[in-house]
Amino acid sequence: MNPTKISASVLKKIKTQNIVPKSKWQFLFKNVLLWILFGFSVLLSAIGVSVIIFAFRETDFDLFSYLDGSALQRFLSLLPIFWLLFFAVFVGIALIGLRKTKRGYRFSVSKLLLVNMVLGILLGTVFYNLGGSEKFESVFANNVRFYRGIHNERLRRWARPSQGRLAGEIIEIKKEQIFLLNDFDQKEWRVDARDLIRELPFELQVGMKIRMIGEEISKNEFKAKVIRPWRMEPRRDLKGERRRPEMRFPGERPMERNEFLKNSIEQ
């Protein structure tokens, strides 16, 4: 077959088989879908970043030496690994989406990766500052079974008095530096905080939720060495006002907005 025969053969085939070009909308739709995939992935990666920032702000890196296990195990236990993976996966999907767009191949993978990461980090920081990170995390903890396990395990880490870690809500101040506390399982503890090795950065009050590192003296007595508020950072709500963080133990229902405001006023 020579070239002119190719031309004749192609035209004949198109005409006899009545082959028509695909609609312009079909290509447009595909491209729009890719951009949506990109946008959605950037949004999810930003959510990941906001929770990572939140997790890092909440992590007691200075208490590293009080944790159990080898240095590597302790280090890994402090990292929000799920959210770091979550961020990486969605940055990757955003990258694929962008690469598959019509002109996506013109940019190098490293450039696109950098752009996606910067977008995710910027947007994630905005989410964090708007107070969205806690909400995102609680949505995951309540709805994603796999994540619920990780989330509860992180909380349960503070329900191991025999390993020197205890958390709960102060229910009564007996005298200065001695108080009663209800733990996650509503078990009452008498806590002695007279020999703290780190100065208490706040005044203990009834209703306050705290976590402690120390020593189990008896079945219901705990000697605290370090006391930290359950949540480290006072957060801002969507109106930009500083507020006490909401704290929930495993199984506890989320606080309604009105209930939360009432509690804040009472405090």
Binding site: M1, I6, S7, S9, V10, K13, I14, I19, P21, K22, S23, K24, Q26, F27, K102
Partner: peptide
């Protein structure tokens, strides 16, 4: 030549994708 025929058919089918 077979490849080329296939190429021209693809070009025809996807002509609206060219911009």
């Amino acid at each position: 030549e077979e490849i080329l025929q296939e190429v021209f058919l693809k070009v025809w089918k996807n002509l609206n994708d060219f911009s």
